[in-house]
Design a protein around this nucleic acid. Sequence first.
DNA 1: CTGAAAGCGCTTACAG
DNA 2: CTGAAAGCGCTTACAG
Lengths: 345, 345
Amino acid sequence: MADVARLAGVSHQTVSRVLNDHPNVRQETRERVLAAIEGLGYRRNSSARALVTRQTNTLGVVAFDTTLYGPASTLYGLERAAREAGYFVSIVSLRELTRDDLAEALDHLARQQVDGLVVIVPQSAIAVALAEMPQPVPVVTVEGDAGVGLPVVNVDQRKGGALVTEHLLRLGHRTVWHVSGPPDWLESQARTQGWRETLLAAGAPIPEPLSGDWSPRSGYRCGQLLAGVPDLTAVFVANDQMALGVVRALDEARIRVPDDVSVVGFDDVPESEFFTPPMTTVAQDFSEVGRKAIELLLDALADDRDHSAPAAEGADGAYPAVPPARIVVQPHLVVRRSSGPPRRS
Amino acid sequence: MADVARLAGVSHQTVSRVLNDHPNVRQETRERVLAAIEGLGYRRNSSARALVTRQTNTLGVVAFDTTLYGPASTLYGLERAAREAGYFVSIVSLRELTRDDLAEALDHLARQQVDGLVVIVPQSAIAVALAEMPQPVPVVTVEGDAGVGLPVVNVDQRKGGALVTEHLLRLGHRTVWHVSGPPDWLESQARTQGWRETLLAAGAPIPEPLSGDWSPRSGYRCGQLLAGVPDLTAVFVANDQMALGVVRALDEARIRVPDDVSVVGFDDVPESEFFTPPMTTVAQDFSEVGRKAIELLLDALADDRDHSAPAAEGADGAYPAVPPARIVVQPHLVVRRSSGPPRRS
DNA sequence: CTGAAAGCGCTTACAG
DNA sequence: CTGAAAGCGCTTACAG
């Protein structure tokens, strides 16, 4: 910066001014400085800047199992939105969904002095744990709505479960069986709730749901159980991977999809259109979720800056009690060949 | 830090010494300082530290399409290994695989002053472009071996292609058709090469390969073409997603897998075991790739520090010309039901 | 083994 | 519109 100042024939804080788009710089001076910057290939030292501004311009993301399509897509949306807003993104993937791992991740990111955090917290216990941890910086949660008072963006999973169930009922099925995800996952709970409520509203019998761990293998095991159910005509499986396993197990039991049994998944992974048969499923706009989360976080950061200015605060310095922001993204049903009317028996 | 020093009754650089595990601190002093740190919940300011040490302790990763299983898994391995080594990881996903996007990504990461970079460069043109760009910090490439002189870790894709082809020939197929990935992808080229060499060595006819873009849809289109090939008995498809599409298209043409035609994929995505039929494929240890890449990068960083010390350098300050490091991870064949002996016609 | 001093490269009131 | 000065919170020779 000193070099730039010298070459442009100004002081170094004038250089700083043009770098920060300060208004009080004469046009001609600005141009001279810009030329010097260009000529020297100068690049501002971000550490020095962070030291004085107390902002690192980096956002932390903590996620779980980013090899799955959903988290990976959300992460992609987050990264893209953050970068477009001029932020760096630092990521940590949890090995396990435990309180300790989460605490460690937050600690790691705090060490880096991120300006804000987005945490993907799929389990209720984890959402609660997160809410109880000290939060030195603004936090936005994704899929973490356990009513714990943190800002959240999520997909309306309950609606998704309802869409599937309505679809199957409308096709003429008397009821719909269900393979849920792990019971302690929020997404899993909401999808199951949507399914149950819809059956209830329709006066349809409500079978005992089976549950898997999202993996195709667990779906396969549930499928083997389902193959023994008399009168089975329709199954709602809580994700596409498990649905694939269910179809496989039914196939091995000589039960045809959709001729004998309709199977519907959830997520609309890119493969699902090419499963045998192509899978009816629910699409979620993960990128949108990522974008919205960053939007919310940037809003929170801006609020934070406003409030830290010693302006119109309450006497006790407390923030006005605004309810935490909530953004809900709507899913939609994608009908393919794995679902159809029940076979007349 | 001043607070800690005061509480411990020492100067602030003694605090710095215990923080940096400097040997010259009396045990008793160290303990007093540690206690003060604990008591105050003190955490070192990383920006200030980075400013003076010129190390941010963060590694940059640039990847393309991290929603795919391979890149997502590699990223996971990278992140985990980096964090275990005490590094932060900052990620940028390329929207498009172009020179401009790559340059922009590197610029972004340079702005953050990462200590080192791992770049996943699947296309030959991109590998070349990367090699030509100025590299202010050590770089390790993944799947980027275009002989451009950068350190690289990759999977032996050629071997993978050979494993598949040998497997099918051994089952008794006269030859093996091939659906490759995009021709400008290095992984694609290597898999095709392994296939071709194996057919050649066996004296088998070499059909003209089809090619897709890794998506299930493109596999589906190729499958429709293959359905019209007389004498078709075996196909090697360059990834599992496309293989899924191929199977779907064959199925629609009433061609049964594996009864009529054997199909083999590549990658061993978690779903492939539950496809209908379960897919024979090639497994790659993506986490291992990630770990090795970080290992290589950390080595390079250590070398860099050694060399920047004004020790035993050549007169011109040039580094000794060691060839760039290369790590090759071996893939292995996973045989499932989608491949079998040809039908006697 | 420990402390006083300088400096890393910026930004930010404060003057002019 | 522009500059001289202080300071952000560390580390690192340099003394003692």
